[in-house]
Design a protein around this nucleic acid. Sequence first.
DNA 1: CTGAAAGCGCTAACAC
DNA 2: GTGTTAGCGCTTTCAG
Lengths: 340, 340
Amino acid sequence: MQTINLKTLASALGLSVSTVSKALQDSHEISPETKQRVWQLARELDYVPNPHASSLRRKRSKIIAVVIPEVADSFFSLAIKGIEAVAQQKGYHTLIYLTYESLTKEQTILHDFQSGRVDGIIISLSGQTTHIDHVTALERKGIPVVLFDRIFEGTTLPRIITNDRESGYLATRHLLQRQCRRIGFLSVSDSLSITKQRQTGYIAALEEATMPVLPEYMLTLPDERAEQEIILSGLLTGPDAPDGLVASVEKTAILTYQLCEKLCIPIPEQLKVISFSNLETASLLNPSLSTITQPAFDMGEAAASTLFNLVEGKNIRSMPTIQCIPSELIPRRSTQQAAE
Amino acid sequence: MQTINLKTLASALGLSVSTVSKALQDSHEISPETKQRVWQLARELDYVPNPHASSLRRKRSKIIAVVIPEVADSFFSLAIKGIEAVAQQKGYHTLIYLTYESLTKEQTILHDFQSGRVDGIIISLSGQTTHIDHVTALERKGIPVVLFDRIFEGTTLPRIITNDRESGYLATRHLLQRQCRRIGFLSVSDSLSITKQRQTGYIAALEEATMPVLPEYMLTLPDERAEQEIILSGLLTGPDAPDGLVASVEKTAILTYQLCEKLCIPIPEQLKVISFSNLETASLLNPSLSTITQPAFDMGEAAASTLFNLVEGKNIRSMPTIQCIPSELIPRRSTQQAAE
DNA sequence: CTGAAAGCGCTAACAC
DNA sequence: GTGTTAGCGCTTTCAG
């Protein structure tokens, strides 16, 4: 079974390859009749153009890359969905890459994109990433990059974020209003933009309430599950254990729930918890989890739309370099006060 | 800034393009000295080969496609992770496509693969898919396809599954042992292989216990959220409301929890629930959810490994055409009996 | 309106 | 060991 290409069509129709190519692209320089003939035969023979040849020639692949630290996380799953929806609708293909929070992996992956493999990149930085030379290198080569969620602060690259600082502030104030007096802050990497922003908001709220900001209440959990447990258990069972926690990442909230169950620390009576999270099951947890729900799908959509505008060279000037889509604070039982 | 390619390297070194090409591939016909020179300059100039050119020429792209109905689901997220892990390690790239349970989308997506865009495909079928002509068409063109989780029964294509029938049986027996006498079965599509298998197991368990198998207890929920609620509420509040439910898909369990809360149906006292699910938060739900936990990551890995063997033409004969990785039943509070 | 020709960057015979 | 050559399948000038 011989593969059918432009040449096959051309000779079958007694036309030249270039005419067929133009006809298939609905070029204005081809007569309506010819176009009809070409289209018909293409359909009959089920012609599917070879994208590698096209990419090579055009220097455009109609492929984008999505680089994220993790996929088994409700935020990133939803974001992918948003990205893929736009991509599919625009006729683009989506390559996906996981960094597992490793800067080295991130660099290796991005380096490959120097090759012209993709037309543009959407990336959420790894927890280890403290500089973005590997990202700007692509920009310098003319390959558009959009940062989303976990961005880099000192750059002019287009960024899609949510109101992290404000949300951190609101979450903390939410706990303060519910009489928490020793509020902790959990994160997984202190170099992450989202961690810094959320923590800044957390600190602002404490200071506004003239509460002390204690370093021992701000925990950055390591990668290792076993170590995480030790460190967080230490905080929760210590002499001055917190009575409130802001979990800046979903998985730290899950860990807290698991440990509280094991350690018999009742939520919300002894410890109130609020988390940045997109868990569909937040309202079904025991107790239901108060969340800062991020607009994950929308952020994915926005990132993709922005990228395609860049790729297709739409008037870039008119596009905001940074787009902020607000999160929503949803109070639930995990931060409820005992009825008086 | 001019893009650097084989020609650049060749002329800079006073070698021919083909020599440089061979050197970079560590061909045995090139002298060690030349290889050294080539590698060194390639590193200095940061040469990155153009994958489109290579794919065109070799008729091999080092890209695979993953086609799934949904990504915001713990099973598929984990499976992707397993697939991507193997792909990255093998030096392959992973395109991702979502069908949103639509057969038409699935067909469109697969049709494009006739082009040679990818070297192989891993697919979990949409809920609407009742024939796989679009899949076998690829096989006939020599493009390897591996089915996983939601497979098609009448085919010899390689398949990665879990023990669905047995798990359905065990889940149902689990409920029977906990004194449920009116056990319902929830699904999202009755043409899905996993639905059929799990339901077969469910029926087998009922028959073994000489219990009636009632069609009104076997619910296939539509796509629309609002309709889902009406139908499931109808069952839960009906005259002969079930006292046990087997949720064959994670999202039906979540819906059940949400409705039970709204309708004030206590779990497990009035209704016991067990679900096929990979929810990380299953143990934290209120009440904690008994699950049939599928080996999602392992299935992803197995699918990818199998595909790469096929792609790389390893002795296909020796590979099992169907691999079954067992699930695990984890009893939790949602199926607990009241203490006597 | 159609066709001839060149070439995207790389690989693989096949010479030398 | 190294170079020459001929494409992979497509797009795009440029002639006619």
